[in-house]
Design a protein around this nucleic acid. Structure first.
Lengths: 189, 189, 189, 189
DNA sequence: GATGAATGAGCTTTCATTCAT
DNA sequence: AATGAATGAAAGCTCATTCAT
């Protein structure tokens, strides 16, 4: 009973390890097969292809960050700071996974294998835009176009995490606060 | 006489067109060959491989942005604002090239074809870090670690340009000023 | 059931035919593919490359000659004569394979594709050297350095086989005896 | 005036260095071009191709060994011993060149680039066979078929030189005598 | 004599994917 | 649910050689 799930999990674990080590593009199904111990057929039994494996891992990783999200009824300041700080704290605790997300985000628009992921990202983007529109309607934040606001709030964190090394929790907390405060300052009304 | 240089330029132009259209990874030598009209052998006569072509284009594109750089004797505020505004203005005028630079920056650490580009990027990074250290020594900017300062200053612009559409000069100028001001505010002493 | 092994054997047979006809270097994977009817992918499914195919054939061919080896408890005279005569008899019965072995032996030190074969040859050399050292310890053979003794014993046979034509068994037997006697005479104590 | 010859010699020297280091097959015209400083066009001005360069070097190297040949009026013993000893002494003084000759001898029958060399080798073979026939007519040597006699006389030396390291003159002399004596003993009447 | 740009067929190898078992 | 043999297009790259200058 658990065997079934285990096989699927083995594949995901092996794939993640490969993606983190060599990047998505440079990872071949053959490498995942070897590392997971599954057969080629097994992999294609559970996933429709490399892109589907990546998407599953992406959703899994996103969940790690999302855990930091605060209630949609909280104030704009609380929500924005929590979002940025959460991204930084999770990213500094999992720099490899963070870079993996980044790679996929960059690849998604170019690689047709990742068309499903592309759709998923688009929906996330729309949700964020809607949330920001609400804050604007409440006059909590400036009347900036969402792409600009998004860049001001999250750009520094994304940029920093791209090259960051694993960081101890207390240092990570301080850095997260720094980026969170800057984010709020740059968009508050 | 000019014919000789033209062949090399044909290849670079064709390669740039391909890279902008399909991305670096998805562009094959065969595509460049077809678009440029050069033979495979000619391409390898002028460039040691796909990575070398990309590097040549990268340096060329960087030159476009660097044109905005201000004198190293100017104040920190002038230099930082000019750097950020220049990036944004150039990027909004050439969004495809801007995305191309971004793709290469992301690929360079993972792709061994781009190891020379990697070295070039590292040297650019070092120069920027040194310049920032000078500003810190002059107490013009906060005493932030360079990676954090760099992310605060340029992260928003990089992030915005990744999805930006071509923009008219006056609108681009306004957006550039916005990002430049935010950059200076986030690091000034 | 036998089909699986057949595919592998098809490839080996086709490769041997190609190697014998054009030599190892001049044989391309494409030729082996055509002659065997296997796809490129199939070839690489069973063998890691051209070198691995050659090595498999080499081991197979060596086995043909080794069949003549006599027990390690026999006298030096018996063993040396059997070894040389066996080489000649097998070589005259299979002159193409014999030349193929010779080509690989010559190529192995130069061609990196053949590095595994190189190791295999080295181990065979060591074994022969050890056997000869035993005979020396028993004062059955002269106290010559092994490389010289080896050249004296097998050099003529190798040299002859390089240009030899297929020969009828009884003539081959006479020639083999001739070389075997000469070999023993040149190293006996 | 000497410049012309120098260019040709530069090419030959560079080619020899390349052939000795990587072998004939693995040496490309481009490598010779780089090492010699000559242009591609220059190389093809002096030589019709890689095979022609190799042949020129082959003839040059053969001359080194032939210097040891004794007068055709000397006794069979003198001539055979001189020939074998000369081969060994020269080969131990120039092991790389010796291996180069060996490689070409092995390649000549397979590689069409070397068809001229093939003809040259055949003529050398015929001359040797004729000389041996004379000795047989004088009843100085056994009535062996020439291929067998040739293998008995020179096989050990060829075999030894294939793996030999550079050797000091006095040791080389001793080894040469050993092989020369063995050669004579194996064919004398 | 000398140059080096140009050629293009050919090479080995990788890869995601399919499918009969 | 699982296997792994089979596919074949496509990739990057090498190379001996030609030829206009």
């Amino acid at each position: 009973m658990t065997e079934i799930l285990d096989r699927r999990r083995d594949i995901l674990e092996a794939a993640l390890a490969c993606f983190l080590e060599h990047g998505y593009r440079a990872t071949s199904i053959a490498q995942i097969r070897q590392k997971s111990g599954a057969s080629t057929g097994s992999i294609y039994h559970f996933f429709s292809g490399k892109g589907a494996i990546a998407e599953a891992l992406f959703r899994q990783a996103i969940a790690g960050w999302s855990a930091f999200a605060s209630s949609p009824t909280a104030s704009a300041e609380t929500r924005i700071k929590a979002s940025v700080a959460g991204l930084v704290i999770w990213g500094l605790a999992n720099p490899d996974q963070s870079r993996f997300l980044d790679e996929l985000r960059n690849l998604a628009p170019l690689d047709d294998e990742l068309r499903d992921l592309r759709a998923f990202l688009a929906s996330g983007h729309d949700a964020a835009a809607a949330a920001f529109a609400d804050m604007q309607a409440n006059r909590e934040v400036q009347k900036l176009p969402f792409p600009i606001a998004h860049a001001l709030m999250l750009g520094p964190a994304y940029s920093y995490l791209r090259n960051a090394a694993p960081t101890k929790p207390d240092a990570a907390q301080r850095i997260a606060t720094l980026f969170a405060d800057a984010a709020w300052k740059s968009v508050k009304a």
